[in-house]
Write a protein that binds this DNA or RNA. Structure first.
Length: 595
DNA sequence: GCCGTTTTCGGCCCGACTGTTTTCAGTCG
């Protein structure tokens, strides 16, 4: 774990302990914010600490600065140690139990001596908790369910697993007459690589007060395994699919006139919402899921649960309109993470995010020559159908025996075959390449003389992914420095929720990549998505060029670039950062410059 | 704990649902 991650987790733990101790909520939130911001940083905290610049980080004040400085120097924090000693360590994991919050955990601890989850289960079974103030039979039952759910939950599930489930439910909602519009919100809309739950927002037809009927139908959909809550404006369920314990889906229903406000609100992130709500207050406005209102009018207006307040909003129908009234341009959902997007928007410095139309070709693909299922011609036809002007065929090298990797001899024959196909497609640039293995010590799987015959080289790590940081980093740097390597494919080799991948120190890698003109790949294939968004953003900050490739093994695979673009957009990447957005000529120059 | 061209003190986003309540606390998002 990197130093930044360690300190981020330290602050997370401190915020949790403070929560349990019933500390001022805003102090809890302040530490949570520090934790999140430090976790997202693209630069090293040690350097910031040494230069005395910690308080320049938004959210870091005097107290947090001291904690960080001490930790950087000594690897510990006396503030944290004191806090940790003040509550039983076993209480912290109990906060993960759904339906059980800090107040109740503290109550059980102080009144019944419950200090961990095991003791909680015993206390429930023995009936020891009955009779405590505010604790009835239903509450006990809900805690029991929460414990069972936690035990069966697989944690956050991947975006590619969650999206089909969400779209299935959306389809059913959209078929209902009372429903005017239904959309995905939350972290799924923002495109996070893993999803804790799915948020859906649904607008009713004008004048239709059928919210109750919609939630009733929703909780009865065949995908629904369990109903967690249900009212006229919202419902919460667990679906059958989506990991071992099912996937939680929250539906929120609003009148059509409030759709923009609700969509904005439920898309989040929480940090983004807090920021723009603060801006609203500064302008004498207040923003909630119903709309943006003049504060004075809003305070006086009649309000009923589940209904828009009885006052005309300043804006509410579309997100664009609400942003505009706050003095902001539209902010793309992928960057609504409280990572400086609102300040950038205010300064007119929002990034021009890369879009599907900017992609002119794919530089990492496989054919039947190794482990793909399509021929060279079929892949070219598929690329043409996508409107691409170039494609690189990059079959595996010899070490990948399991993937039918090519020997030098087979590779050179394959190059000839690719060039023969190339000559048939005028105006299209077909590159003969190879996805060459980066061996354990950073050498490549082919001699330079072989690589010199190729139009483009993608070098990727496939084996020995459990090296220590030093070895792994040296290995990748060596490949970056090779004059024949144009792209490092899936640099860490991680698989979301399955394999951590190489523990790389990216700073020397970025420095070498920028200096040598080697691009780093965002592999668009799920569950790779490697580089991830943090590393991709740090890469462009370090002036490294990126490639976004599908690593397609079929013609259909070539079309699946969406999640790669999502990672890039979340990393504030624009077309100017990505070699797949170059013209074929510029790309050839980018490759030639290195040799 | 953090923050500031209205503020160095006094705010900090806010609503829905549940359960245990006779008017609200806890939890969640």
């Amino acid at each position: 774990m990197s130093l930044n991650q360690e300190i981020s987790e330290l602050f997370h733990s401190m915020s949790r302990i403070l929560e349990l101790k019933g500390a001022n909520t805003f102090k809890v939130i302040a530490f949570q914010k520090v934790s999140r911001i430090l976790g997202d940083l693209t630069f090293d905290l040690r350097k910031m600490a040494e230069e005395g610049k910690l308080e320049e980080i938004e959210g870091v004040g005097g107290s947090s600065r001291k904690v960080i400085e001490e930790y950087v120097k000594t690897g510990r924090s006396t503030d944290y140690d004191e806090l940790a000693a003040s509550v039983p360590a076993g209480l912290l994991p109990m906060l993960e139990i759904s339906g059980l919050g800090p107040k109740t955990i503290a109550l059980f601890w102080k009144e019944k001596g419950v200090t961990n989850q095991e003791e909680l289960v015993k206390a429930i079974e023995s009936g020891a908790l009955a009779g405590l103030k505010g604790i009835g039979a239903k509450k006990i039952e809900s805690i029991k369910q929460g414990i069972a759910m936690l035990a069966s939950a697989a944690g956050r599930i991947g975006i590619a697993e969650a999206r089909p489930i969400a779209e299935g439910l959306l389809g059913r909602l959209r078929e209902m007459k009372a429903v005017k519009r239904a959309e995905i919100a939350g972290s799924l809309r923002r495109g996070r690589e893993t999803i804790g739950d799915v948020d859906l927002v649904c607008a009713l037809q004008a004048g239709d007060a059928a919210g109750e009927a919609v939630t009733k139908a929703f909780v009865g959909f065949p995908e629904v395994q369990r109903v967690l809550g249900q009212g006229p404006t919202k419902a919460s369920v667990v679906t059958v699919g989506g990991g071992q314990g099912g996937l939680q889906v929250d539906l929120r229903i609003v009148p059509a006139d409030c759709f923009g406000a609700a969509w904005l609100y439920f898309t989040g992130s929480k940090d983004h919402n807090v920021k723009i709500r603060g801006m609203a207050l500064e302008k004498g406005l207040t923003l909630n899921e119903w709309g943006l209102y003049k504060l004075a009018e809003y305070d006086k207006a009649a309000k009923k649960t589940g209904e828009a307040p009885a006052v005309k909003p300043v804006a509410s129908k579309t997100e664009t309109e609400i942003y505009a009234k706050l003095g902001l341009p539209f902010i793309e959902p992928e960057i609504r993470e409280g990572r400086g997007e609102v300040d950038a928007a205010l300064k007119g410095q929002l990034p021009n995010l890369i879009a599907r139309a900017d992609i002119r070709g794919d530089l990492h693909s496989h054919t039947t020559a190794s482990d793909g299922v399509a021929s060279i011609e079929q892949m070219v036809e598929a690329a043409l159908a996508l409107g691409y002007s170039f494609l690189a065929i990059t079959d595996h090298s010899k070490s990948q025996t399991i993937a039918n990797g090519l020997s030098a001899e087979r590779l050179l024959k394959h190059v000839k075959a690719i060039h023969a196909v190339r000559d048939k497609y005028k105006g299209f640039t077909l590159l003969a390449g190879c996805e060459v293995d980066i061996l354990v010590d950073g050498r490549l799987d082919f001699e330079d003389a072989v690589l010199a015959e190729l139009d483009i080289v993608v070098a990727s790590p496939h084996a020995s992914l459990k090296q220590d940081e030093k070895k792994a980093t040296d290995r990748i740097v060596r490949a970056v420095e090779s004059r024949y390597v144009n792209i490092i494919g899936h640099p860490t080799g991680r698989l979301i929720n399955r394999r951590a991948g190489l523990p790389l120190d990216f700073r020397p890698i970025f420095a070498a990549a920028a200096k040598n003109g080697t691009a780093l790949e965002i592999n668009a294939g799920y569950p790779r998505l490697d580089l991830n968004e943090q590393n991709a953003r740090a890469a462009i900050d370090a002036r490294v060029m990126l490639a976004i490739d599908t690593d397609a093994h079929s013609t259909e695979g070539l079309a699946e670039i969406g999640y790669g673009l999502t990672v890039a957009r979340r990393a504030w990447v624009g077309p100017q950062h990505v070699i797949n957005c170059m013209s074929a000529d510029e790309l050839q120059k980018f490759i030639a410059r290195k040799r």
